[in-house]
Amino acid sequence: MELTTILFYLFAIVTISAAAVMVFSKNIVHSAFALMFTLIGVAALYVLLYADFIAATQLLVYVGGILILILFGVMLTTQGRTFSFKTSTVNLTPASILSVAAALLLIYAFVQTDWKITDSGVRDETVHELGMMLMGEYVLPFIAVGVLLLIAIIGAILMSTRLSANNDGEV
């Protein structure tokens, strides 16, 4: 067996088991840390698929950004006089039947389809090519994404700042 094959199986097992821990763990903080292992596993799989820049971005944006935001959300919502949950899961049986059926259908469709593969052999780093494409062919979506992120920041500030009646409209 080749080294890449062994690495693929290793990271696939890490990713899937961490995802399962994330879904079924009772403790939210455990879920968040399991999500971290899933995201790192997916980043490693990106490296195996020759996407070095996307792997680095995945680590920076997901593990460094979104996961920290989620941990802040966990900490902000589990303090003080909170109502505890009676049960942490609902609809377990119908949901698992439905999703196992969905998984089987998806995997069947993926395996049965005859994918056209063009193997271009040894590949170079993708950063240069990605930069050229972002600044050339895809410059309009690039700008649109920038505007979207700005709007998201403004929206988040508006929504998470307390707008109550007793401070006279001051935010």
Binding site: A19, I28, V74, A95, S96, L98, S99, I107, F110, W115
Partner: peptide
């Protein structure tokens, strides 16, 4: 490529299970 796609399908379905069964909005 089938292995990668199958892994992606399994991850997606685990996500579906989580959305359907969990009651905590953050999860």
């Amino acid at each position: 490529i089938d292995w990668y796609l199958a892994l992606s399908a399994i991850l997606f379905t685990i996500g579906i299970v989580g959305v359907l069964i969990r009651r905590n909005a953050i999860v």
